[in-house]
Design a protein around this nucleic acid. Sequence first.
DNA 1: GCACCTATTTATAATTT
DNA 2: TAAATTATAAATAGGTG
Lengths: 187, 187
Amino acid sequence: MGRRKVDMKRIEDKHSRQVTFSKRRSGLMKKAHELSVLCDVEIGLMVFSAHDRLYEFSTGDGLGKILQHYEAHDNEGESSDKLKTYDTEYDGLWANDDMLKVMSNLKIEELTTKELAHLERQLDSILKPIRLRKTELMMETMTTLSEKEKQLREENQFLENKVTAIVGDRGKQVQLSEVNDHAAHSM
Amino acid sequence: MGRRKVDMKRIEDKHSRQVTFSKRRSGLMKKAHELSVLCDVEIGLMVFSAHDRLYEFSTGDGLGKILQHYEAHDNEGESSDKLKTYDTEYDGLWANDDMLKVMSNLKIEELTTKELAHLERQLDSILKPIRLRKTELMMETMTTLSEKEKQLREENQFLENKVTAIVGDRGKQVQLSEVNDHAAHSM
DNA sequence: GCACCTATTTATAATTT
DNA sequence: TAAATTATAAATAGGTG
């Protein structure tokens, strides 16, 4: 349903895939919601991004209920209870901007495995754009310097030609060695 | 998407509701399947009809795997939207790496905590020297370019002085504008 | 109910801003 | 880069057999 028909196979272009994932994911959530409302049925939907982020939709108050329903439905119900507990108490804990402040006051030793895992993901998320930005800036600097170098080389060439034109070839030989001596001093 | 727009509320007519349920349910399943294929992601979807009949869709071999994934996931899908923005930055992290091959053959879900910890340490120790080396190389390049720039500036200055000394101040003015025109062309 | 039809609405791929 | 726009593909409401 777009400008053109799309092959039903993995989208190879990374960027397109991400964009499509975002659009179709929300489209799917919307449709799930509509079905649940129009037909008054229970629905549970979970989508894991390629990098394991969870996006979910469910009727009622959370997938938990739906999962219980599912398991009650006895589909060879596996999934031992030991992993079943998931707490919502940390939701929104990091939503504010003062994360750094909170972080610096945390006593790592006192955190649970779950909290540490959460923390680790958060830190990685923060670190990534910082590193990208650093690389970006360095790339920019290098490009600028390269251009400057090119320009200076050309000015240099132009001036050399000027000198050659004025004093002739013999004079140029002398000058070039003088230039090199001069330059060597500045290193 | 039909002969007319439909209110987003429970369809009261039993027959219409059933028909719509059937049509939209398969539409939803299809969309879930498409998303999973196009974007290469894991999806679990369960729909319970009004009469408690289960309709499900899932990638891989069954909802069981997806549910385990979900339950192991400590339900962080609801947390900080701000950080979710950076999701895309992870794309391609392994993209052009031999590591990708190794990784894709691993069944992460089947590894023990100890094995995962080991893997993590290994990855970290691989990542660190790569990053250090990259920074090192970029620093080196920038330093070299800076030095080259400095040297060229000095040669340039020297040549300019030479020209000035030979043709005098009036000639120099003319030449400098010529130089600038010349340089402008190279940008 | 199911399969097909088709006028319309909706979703979305590509493009623009 | 992301948000908005646009052109087109796809889903589907209401109907028919």
